[in-house]
Amino acid sequence: MSGPPEERFRALYDAHFRDVLRFALRRTPQPEDAADVVAETFTVVWRRLDRVPYGGEALPWLYGVCRKVLANQTRSALRRERLGARLRATLATRVVPDPAGDVTLRLSVNSAMERLSSSDRELLRLSAWEGLAPQDIAIVLGIAPRVARTRLSRARARLRAELGPEVSSKVGRDARAAGGHELDVQGASLPQPAPGKGR
């Protein structure tokens, strides 16, 4: 019979499994590696359920756990318990990253990202890929919201400078042509374009 801890864990898992899996997929070299990361992350959640915040802070907190799992992973350690074998097998055979994206644009962005610091990259990913607001990014990274907001602002300025106006303009045109939605940049302060990169 399930008690409250079991019910809460199931609810957390049901609500956030895909989010955490996607988070892990974006940060692991092979899709199947994400299975180990997700298994480890939710195992920690299961064992530390009393530490998981309630409400909207739960998901960024899970991302924070997942991020540390990723940072600390070793092949042998994460595979020790061999949980999630079926998930791993499916990810290895059925999940392919970005099968339909704009290759040229992706390469341009990836190239620009590579020139940024790992800290900037992670801030940008959390903002654009996970869609987190600065206050949630702060939870993930364990820093103050004000610091997250400032760092994100600077990271975006540096990304714009690296991308240059042509790429950004192309993105805008493509997005409008595709009826793309406006992105929620939830509270991030908007820096001025870098000198010489003005648009």
């Binding site: 974006r26 970005d98 644009l105 962005v109 990202m113 714009r160």
Partner: peptide
């Protein structure tokens, strides 16, 4: 312009 840089990032999301 700010939306464009985030759009660019989203375009590079391998698991959008």
């Amino acid at each position: 312009m700010t939306s464009d840089d985030v759009r660019a990032m989203q375009a590079a999301d391998p698991y959008a």
